[in-house]
Design a protein around this nucleic acid. Structure first.
Lengths: 345, 345
DNA sequence: TTGTACGCGTTATCAA
DNA sequence: TTGATAACGCGTACAA
């Protein structure tokens, strides 16, 4: 039952060659006669030989695999990003090893270290919402493992970064909400520490400023787990509704928060958009099916994954040290639907 | 910049021990004196030593990683399954390497082989919709790599299988559609070859039979790519609508097909449920937000991932060959909402 | 054109 | 309690 796989040594013995000849013949080396190559390759094929990639890894110190660190897979945005990463990785012969932080800094650190010891050739990272200490990443980077940040980036190390134009996306939506008559606009968002939170808030604030509306702290709600738990969203909304002047619109700053907020408002029978208009970041495939249809800021998730993977593999395969790093910003797309447009009163 | 990581040999040299002593001291072997252990472990800690997992793999022929083969990650159902797999794998110290078939038999075969050569310790597989030839899986299994099937299973090899109670899920929904007044019920489903297609169709047919409704081939539409491309769904629906007696209800047999069909009907301004009632398999998080709210058969996706991973790791770590295999069937849940309930006329 | 010998980092076996 | 040696499978400098 348990047939051990055939090795180069086996072939060498069987054919009365040395292992090096076999090795070279299999790799089609120019130093080997056509005749020998033919024999060896034929034998290998017949006996279903395949190189032991672990041994190759040990020897070459390359594994042809890249580690992906993100917060959560069941998330429209990240799932698409993964798809983009995979499309490039597959083409270039890399495997992807995906780990989730579940928004936990400790888990992120453990996973990243583990990936490193397993000697992935590089790391694609979107930080957890808890992460403040990035010293482990700095160390890993110093030790020579290339890292590319995507989505939730950091400048703790000097490297490529791929992200959406969060500022502009948030700006466009907020501006749109104002134009459609909302004045008291709340923001439900991810933890303060995240790059995307700051960027999206900046766009939000810019739109308000341009329209002479003050940013009021009471209207800004942070979800500690980025909306992973529906409870934190419900709490945020409850607090908003309990205000003396509850908001007449909400800007939701992430996929989970957007769908979650919609669900909570729906559960509470709060009419969207008339009582509260709603719009936010989401990569859900069919926002037009909601009641009312959902206004979204769409991120180029697939493209982001592709770009990040391309840049990483470029780093991995670069002969000389790279010093010139990109901060690639991909455009978002505002799609206006009914959830954000108040009906004439 | 490129500090090579420290190895056991480095420690041995520095401390004037042999590599075997160091190796044993680090693994806390009882044969090593407390004093030596202390010294070695302290040195290792100070110099940030971590075992090279690739070398360990080569030596032990284990990699502490499991390969996951499924059709597509950006899919509510599979994304949740992955999450379930990960929860167990993480707890047991395994990494998961995910590959997608994109419903291509060739790609599935290539990925599975590649995973094997990379010596994953085991494989979790949900077949692609194209797959008919499973000889490669049989070979891999014979060669000693444990495989567990989930979702889209096969009996080509004797092993554990974890799946939802597809027959019953489909039965319940179809019965419900009939009770609510539909008689000409169509089915849009995945390719014939898949286990889930057969199982779900069986439930569908049983409900019809119990109500003396004949199963008409013209009402059964197969999507070659399991609904991955919206076009194939649109085509199916167009064909249904062009029938002399178009259906008054549709049962959709997978996540993508369900959401996709809803979107197509919506686009065509076909009123759900009055003109066509709709319900089907879906693991979308908020089907109650649709207009009308969507009746779904929910699969225990997370649980399925957990179960499959548990069974696989059990196989991997079992000392003696396992001959007694489970066919674990997890219950589905029908959640009735408005899309399936025709309003009184 | 082919072969010999060694090293990648670790662990297991046997000996001291 | 510790050390020398071989082995996992592969690739390569050096030699022939």
């Amino acid at each position: 039952m348990k047939n051990d796989p055939i090795t180069i040594t086996d072939i060498a013995k069987a054919l009365n060659f040395s292992t090096s000849t076999v090795s070279r013949a299999l790799r089609n080396s120019y130093q080997i006669s056509e005749e020998t190559k033919r024999i060896v390759q034929q034998y290998a094929k017949d006996h279903n030989y395949h190189p032991n990639l672990v041994a190759q890894s040990l020897k070459s110190n390359k594994s042809k695999s890249i580690g992906v660190m993100l917060s959560s897979i069941p998330n429209n945005f990240y799932a698409e990003v993964i798809n983009g990463i995979e499309s490039i990785a597959y083409k270039k012969g890399y495997h992807i090893i995906i780990t989730q932080s579940h928004e936990s800094e400790e888990r992120e650190a453990r996973n990243v270290e583990h990936l490193t010891w397993r000697s992935v050739d590089g790391l694609l990272i979107s930080l957890s919402s808890e992460t403040t200490d990035t010293s482990n990443l700095e160390k890993i980077s110093e030790y020579g493992t290339p890292i590319v940040f995507f989505d939730r980036v950091s400048d703790c190390i000097n490297t490529h970064r791929v992200r959406a134009d969060n500022e502009n996306g948030a700006y466009q939506l907020t501006k749109h909400l104002i134009e459609k008559g909302s004045r008291r606009i709340a923001e439900i968002t991810s933890p303060r520490e995240l790059s995307i939170t700051a960027e999206r808030h900046a766009g939000f604030a810019r739109a308000l400023a341009e329209n002479d509306i003050e940013v009021e702290e009471q209207y800004i709600k942070y979800c500690a787990h980025g909306g992973m738990h529906i409870d934190e969203i419900e709490e945020a909304i409850n607090e908003l509704l309990a205000l003396p002047n509850p908001p007449d619109a909400i800007f939701t700053a992430s996929d989970r928060i957007t769908i979650g907020s919609f669900a909570i408002l729906h559960k509470k029978n709060i009419v969207i958009p008339d009582i509260i208009a709603l719009g936010g970041f989401s990569n859900f495939s069919s926002p037009e099916l909601f009641n009312p249809s959902l206004t979204t800021i769409l991120q180029p998730a697939f493209e982001m994954g592709k770009a990040a993977a391309e840049l990483l593999i470029q780093l991995i395969e670069s002969k000389r040290p790279v010093t010139d790093f990109e901060d690639r910003v991909l455009p978002t797309e505002l799609v206006i639907r009914n959830s954000s447009v108040k009906n004439k009163l």
